[in-house]
């Protein structure tokens, strides 16, 4: 065990996967000598050289589009998009090609690459540096979407993403890069993609979230203890495919659910979870499904950021609502 931040855990996963498989290569803006703007790739350039840790031109579509060709050539590209708010130039490549190659070739070709992106807000960043637009990728069958909430999961999920035979969008909540530390196993391990994690077990209400919001939910759960409300906190970990089974089993037990996410509410990932439960878990529900999310507005600059991001107060208010029903 070693105490690690999420940045260190991600770095460890990249290093061990690169040691394990020489086809794993990293590419992106400033990922080489500079070690990435968040230092996730720090030291890897010196260790693996410029042919495996590649500084590219400033070119999001170029990074993802050429990664497709590299994947077809048998490499396992791990591309970095510097911030999720800058992924749009690469969107065409991801939606029109990466997601479709296995299907439209009827299995002859596949496109097993990983695209890492720092996502989410809470760090008082510049405009376009705080977006949490994971829902956009849920309309692209063929992709998998993953977001860790802890250093341990970051290491295990990134290793799993790199070994996955399908393309994975790997979202890194930048607020959690250095704000939490945790004991992380030093040996290699894989955290399965597509499996949610029950962070806290409880029988009264389910809080479902991912990324930074898992910690907001845990804070709320702590406060609810004083009211003798036992909260079940679920970290989805994978957003595509969503692990509805774990959520449904939790709702069967608690009958009450609050879904918490940073991204905008309308047609957000929470909407899909709520719709699924409405279709299949109606009789298990003792109260309406409630969402606590970012508002349907442009992500604000630093001074209003805290009014946008869900916090434990908003979560507690939502829990009160479902408990009172």
């Amino acid at each position: 065990m070693a105490t690690m931040t999420m940045v260190q855990a991600l770095n460890a996963a990249l290093r061990s996967e690169m040691e394990r498989d020489k086809n794993v290569i990293l590419l992106g803006e400033d990922v080489g000598k500079d070690g990435g703007v968040f230092r996730v790739t720090e030291g890897l350039y010196d260790e693996f050289g410029s042919e495996r840790v590649i500084d590219t031109p400033l070119s999001e579509s170029g990074i993802v589009g050429s990664s497709i060709g590299l994947a077809l050539a048998g490499f396992k590209p791990v591309a970095e998009i510097q911030f999720m708010g800058f992924d749009y130039p690469a969107f065409d490549q991801l939606i029109s090609h990466v997601a479709r190659i296995r299907s439209r070739s009827r299995g002859r070709y596949s496109c097993p690459l990983v695209v890492r992106m720092p996502s989410g807000g809470g760090v008082k960043a510049l405009e376009h540096h705080s977006e949490s637009t994971e829902a956009l990728y849920l309309q692209a069958p063929g992709l998998k979407v993953v977001m860790p909430a802890t250093p341990s999961d970051a290491k295990g999920l990134l290793a799993a993403a790199i070994r996955d035979p399908d393309p994975v969008i790997f979202l890194e909540p930048k607020k959690l890069y250095r704000s939490i530390k945790e004991d992380v196993k030093e040996e290699n391990y894989l955290t399965p993609i597509g499996k949610a994690r029950i962070v806290l077990s409880g029988k009264d209400v389910s809080l479902v979230s991912w990324g930074t919001m898992v910690h907001v939910c845990l804070e709320a759960a702590e406060a609810l203890k004083a009211q003798r409300i036992e909260t079940e906190v679920i970290d989805m970990r994978t957003l595509s495919p969503l692990d509805f089974g774990t959520v449904a089993a939790s709702v069967k037990k608690t009958g009450r659910i609050v879904i918490v996410h940073e991204g905008q509410r309308s047609c957000g990932v929470g909407a899909e979870i709520a719709a699924w439960l409405a279709e299949r878990s109606m009789t298990d529900l003792a109260a309406p499904i409630v969402r606590v999310t970012g508002w349907d507005v442009i992500y604000p600059l630093a001074k209003l950021e805290n009014y946008y991001l869900p916090d434990s107060k908003r979560v507690l208010k939502a829990v009160e609502k479902v408990m009172r029903f």
């Binding site: 290569i25 042919e51 579509s61 170029g62 993802v64 589009g65 050429s66 990664s67 497709i68 060709g69 590299l70 994947a71 077809l72 050539a73 048998g74 490499f75 590209p77 065409d92 490549q93 029109s96 090609h97 439209r104 070739s105 070709y109």
Partner: peptide
């Protein structure tokens, strides 16, 4: 396979060629 979205597949060829070079 042939690409329908115009111009997007140039990058695939570049990436593949680059891979051959590596």
């Amino acid at each position: 396979m042939y690409s329908v979205p115009v111009g997007t597949h140039l990058l695939h060829a570049v990436g593949y060629a680059w891979g051959m070079k590596i």
